[in-house]
């Protein structure tokens, strides 16, 4: 029987390594403190919540005939190929309609997916609008040659049933000789309304969410009140994109620390370097 190694093996073998571990732990604590202290207020609701989307979501849209430059066709002929973003305006509109369509066009350019994930249908709810009026409007907006934008008209009764099913409302105001109406674009997938965006303009971030939904995905997270220090992925409603957050680093930290600690024990501890003489 013999003793192996010097007396020092009986003391805790981590003397200088213990200090290194304390420094590492202190650094980690400082990181947590700084992250927490400077945590940003979390973003508000990712998109402007339309007033009555929940009353219409997943409801069937009436499959009405519309007249377009391709002739008379049912709406289903379009939404059977691709989901549809449907909006209603009138060509004599002196107020929001053209700016609304321009913002929709801009949001579509930003969000992408036009032609591949969806097409756009613009109908008039004005009984006096003709197909020529709508084509002129499209030309003014530079959209008459775009195959993924369809401008058209339908019968007043069909327009009324479509409006009732999708949340559009419109009312003639004789004092202004204009229609008061909702500014609304609805997303229709296989004949069912899935999203609704209301407002005088269409934010790109909101449209990005709608396009996600049309692709079968949706933004599952929402903002908690107050500051949030860590997530794996942060949803930014202004850009409509996910970005990596520090939470992902925290998920990778345990495995990384285990590997580093193992390397430290096997390669750096002095006692380990004197090993293998005993084998």
């Amino acid at each position: 029987m013999h003793k192996t190694g010097p007396q020092s093996r009986h003391r805790l073998p981590f003397r200088w390594s213990f200090r290194a571990a304390c420094v590492a732990f202190f650094a980690f604590s400082v990181f947590i403190f700084v992250r927490v202290a400077f945590a940003q207020d979390s973003f508000g609701q990712p998109s402007q919540e339309p007033p009555n989307e929940e009353r219409f979501v997943y409801k069937l849209t009436p499959d009405v005939p519309i007249t377009t430059s391709s002739g008379v066709q049912n709406l289903s002929a379009i939404w059977h190929e691709k989901p549809v973003l449907l909006t209603m305006i009138f060509s004599r509109c002196a107020r929001v309609c053209s700016p609304f369509l321009r913002s929709l066009n801009s949001a579509v350019s930003d969000a992408g997916g036009l032609g591949t994930d969806y097409r756009i249908v613009v109908l008039s709810f004005d009984p006096k609008d003709t197909l020529a009026d709508m084509q002129r409007l499209a030309s003014e907006l530079g959209l008459n040659a775009d195959p993924d934008w369809t401008f058209g008209v339908a019968s007043p009764s069909d327009i009324r049933s479509l409006a009732a099913a999708t949340g559009f409302w419109f009312q003639w105001d004789s004092s202004t000789q204009q229609f008061d109406h909702a500014s609304l674009v609805v997303a229709i997938d296989r004949g069912q309304l899935v999203r609704m965006l209301a407002g005088p303009s269409v934010p790109a971030a909101s449209l990005r969410e709608v396009v996600q939904e049309l692709r079968g995905k949706f933004v599952a997270s929402y903002a908690l009140a107050g500051k949030v220090a860590f997530r794996c992925f942060e949803y930014d409603p202004t850009s409509g994109r996910y970005s990596l957050d520090w939470g992902l680093a925290l998920m990778l930290l345990p495995g990384t620390c285990a590997i580093l600690a193992t390397a430290w024990v096997f390669f750096l501890l002095p006692a380990s370097r004197k090993k293998r003489n005993l084998i």
Binding site: V36, S42, G226, K227, C232
Partner: peptide, 12 residues
């Protein structure tokens, strides 16, 4: 007083 992502906590 700082919120943490509940899903991250659940994973950890």
């Amino acid at each position: 007083g700082v919120n943490v992502d509940p899903l991250l906590m659940k994973n950890l």
